[in-house]
Design a protein around this nucleic acid. Structure first.
Lengths: 141, 141
DNA sequence: GTATCTGCAAAACATTTGCAATTCT
DNA sequence: AGAATTGCAAATGTTTTGCAGATAC
């Protein structure tokens, strides 16, 4: 659970990671923190562009790369063609419903995921992606 | 463990899934079955083109899409920019060593991976991608 | 002989890069 | 002023598509 809510906190969050809190950067991170639906670059850009007419897609790309490198956001590549972003950087998996398209977060037991085959390997990142049909869609058949 | 070895078996394997075993298709699937290193389209194409000068990248793409839809091969998107392919369609995870670039298969306990958060969800596909440093690279520091 | 398969060239798309204009301190 | 940031346009790189020629049954 993240506690970040106000713009002030967003700016602080950026500063703590050595990133200058420019207006576009604050708004992009704020978007990710507020809307937790793992948006694409296109989604972030088109929504923010309504309120920030001068915003360019390049800035969205630059900022997301910056945030990713700083470990403030996390890349979600559950779809092959486009990258999604998640402001929750704690260990968790992603489930994509093929029927409604929603992406759900779910808890994973990090220890249970450590395979014997990887004994003496150093694991830095774990991406767990499931696909199927969510509860809601299964009920509405 | 897969038992497929000879070209005859490859052709049969294709036929069983309703795919006409043309020469390029046999060679592409054979490549995947023989070399188990999760090759990219570029790798498959450039290696096979040495022996099949008329081969085009389009055919490699078409064939891989066909094989994926037929569930004969599996897509591995452990890298953001390019797609890899795996002839092993049984449940297992992929580990990428950031130092040497190798991709390792590892066993996963399917039951342990089923999160309570996904109770009543239907899970069709599970992609588990880890990144880090492999045992060999850790030893050679 | 008809349907399928192949392969070239062009298109489509997401992402990156070069660079000039803008902003911030 | 000087350094960092932004944004446009062009480039890049992977994958798809349209279509004509080749192949198979």
């Amino acid at each position: 659970m993240l506690i970040i809510a106000s713009k002030g906190n967003i700016a602080e969050h950026l500063l703590e990671h050595g990133i200058k809190p420019s207006y576009p950067r604050i708004r992009i991170l704020e978007y990710l923190v507020t809307k937790r639906n793992h948006p694409t670059v296109e989604e972030i850009f088109s929504n923010l562009a309504k309120e920030i007419p001068t915003l360019s897609k390049t800035t969205v790309y630059n900022t997301l790369n910056l945030l990713t490198e700083a470990n403030i956001v996390r890349v979600v590549t559950i779809e092959e063609n486009e990258t999604r972003y998640d402001a929750d950087v704690t260990t968790h998996g992603h489930f994509k419903c093929c029927r409604c398209g929603s992406i759900y977060d779910f808890g994973i037991d990090e220890e249970a995921l450590k395979s014997d085959d990887l004994r003496n390997f150093r694991i830095d990142e774990m991406d767990v992606y499931y696909r199927g049909v969510c509860k809601k869609c299964l009920e509405n058949i």
